[in-house]
Amino acid sequence: MTPGDISAFAQGAVVTVALSVAGILIGLPVGLGLALIRWARVPVIGRLVALYVSILRATPLVTLLLLLFFALPNVGVPIDPYSAAILALSMNTSAFNCEIWRAALLAFPKDQLEAAMSVGMSAGLRFRRIVLPQIARASLPALVNEMSLLIKVTPVLAVVGVVDITRAAVRIGAETYEPLPPFLVAVALYAPIIYGLVSLQRFIERRQAAAEAA
């Protein structure tokens, strides 16, 4: 590999990580917001959120990405590849996060809320001080799992021209007519990140199980 290749991979890695982090940081609170709308059974909007989640969970990221990238300019909203990538990732992961948060909310014990009401906590305070810390803990392993799934689908962002790890590998392979080595380098870049998240998830699950057993 030439120094140019190495720097292409390094830049690609930065792009992959940056887009993933952006997707995660947007997807987490948006997913929570969507879950709260469903949990509160807001009329009409709650139904719409359920529909949004159902459709997005069934839509491959590549299809969603192509839709956003080609159709938005068509209706007068110009969008560059990176914005399209972040938008597609956030929409995709927010739908899955919504289901994770919602499961935790549905399993949340009613008497915990009542105890908070009985000491006069307002709705905002109840959510912030009593509900959120507990559902965040309960959702954490599933949320980390979703993060690793998100990173695993990022290579598809290259189809609209995002220059990430995968795109760098494809380009180098095409230039050298030796596609295998750059792909293996790409694997060596992705695997530790994903493995790190998978290990983190296992670690959290083990620690929580141990805390419950004690």
Binding site: P155, T166, P179, L180, L184
Partner: peptide, 19 residues
Amino acid sequence: RCIPFLLFAYIVYYGLPSL
């Protein structure tokens, strides 16, 4: 579980022919 599927498909389709 640690390899993105797309990358795996690339390796099978473009990479293995070089072997």
